[in-house]
Design a binder for these strands. Structure first.
Lengths: 208, 208
DNA sequence: TAGATTGTTAATCGATTAACAATC
DNA sequence: TAGATTGTTAATCGATTAACAATC
């Protein structure tokens, strides 16, 4: 329970550090300086050192950082060893793609159930899981409380689903709907694909 | 060709403003003050006014902002009326989900072609488009140059694909692969789904 | 006109970069 | 030891918030 007021900007860079360090590890690189790593990643060496020092001194003067050690530490900071149970709500195109595409286990999550309200999808199998009807949610959660929900339902359905999930005790949302979730004691990570595409549109226009 | 040095932070908020204004429009709200809009969106009134004033004075003292006008202006700033041609490269789970899930037309893009290298996918139909073999890319682009590519290929394939696309003249990438694209004269919007999930993991850990 | 609310300047806050002493 | 490179403090830069005069 470390009271770490580490800024969101730093946290958002951690997975990227983890990825680069993982690659160095595969290439049997043993040590790396903030200088080299920054060049590799397109950051400044100063930023790399500041970022790592938010969590403690992982390097050694005159040597740099031990790749394997740093990789382990960042993985641990992100908390990906302690698996948490997750459910997917919304087994449409996007939900199905996420389940097949993202490695949840590698990122600290264990998928336990999939829900949808479409009778055509209920009962079908998806990545080794049976799609359940959303009305079984409360019953299932009473037995086996998932801590996060991946929300890939249409916007109009999202409000009700969120209320029910929060009532069940879900504490985190990976939210792909355009509904803004603002609730106390709930952590939300919004993925706004449409917004992302529109900013690309703008930035390209600026170049012309 | 307005030399607007508007910060990325502002640009990233524009699609969200657009969304909220669109909703107000549907509810026949005619005018809104920065105060009201900020409360609705969870921002400060100051920020709302600063954001809009990056582009010019869209409001009126004592009145607020005209919803319809502001909506139109933001749409125009984002450039979503001038359609640009886009191609999808990688017709796997994620690519197929995006095509079916995202409204490209509403966001200033017109999907012209879909490519993959998997013979099992080539020739199949997807959202009204035939999936072409990636080797037809150069030939097709010579006739009909797309300005952006939606990149949903595996990481290992991404490097080669990017090189070919840039050679063809593609100027923008909506990049879902974990490959970092750093090239001159190319605009890249990275969507790192795995990273997003990991930051959710971290932030939930902080609450316990 | 009086009240409301913008546009805009100034103050604050936070994040990034630079610099350098500490130290491996 | 000398050289390299961190950890950390200070300087800079940028973004957000506050304040208020301008004005509808």
């Amino acid at each position: 329970m470390e009271k770490s007021p580490v800024s969101a900007a730093v946290i958002r860079r951690l997975p990227r550090y983890l990825r680069y360090l993982g690659e160095l590890l595969l290439r049997d690189v043993e040590r790396i300086s903030s200088q080299e790593l920054s060049r590799l990643m397109g950051l400044t060496a100063s930023q790399v050192r500041q970022d790592f020092n938010c969590f403690g001194g992982y390097g050694q003067q005159g040597y740099g950082y031990n790749v394997a050690f740093l990789h382990r530490e960042i993985a641990s900071i992100l908390g990906i060893e302690e698996q948490q149970d997750a459910i997917l709500v919304g087994a449409g195109n996007l939900g199905r793609a996420l389940i097949n595409h993202i490695s949840f286990e590698r990122r600290g999550f264990h998928l336990v159930d999939i829900y949808d309200r479409d009778p055509k999808l209920v009962g079908s199998s998806l990545h080794g899981h049976t799609v359940h009807h959303i009305d079984l949610l409360e019953e299932h959660c009473a037995r086996h409380l998932p801590s996060i929900a991946i929300l890939t339902v249409p916007r109009l359905a999202a409000g009700e689903v969120v209320t029910r999930l929060v009532a069940c005790g879900v504490k985190g949302f990976w939210n792909f709907s355009s509904l803004d979730i603002r609730l106390p004691d709930v952590t939300v990570e919004n993925v706004r694909l449409g917004d992302s595409l529109m900013t690309l549109r703008y930035r390209m226009k600026q170049r012309d």
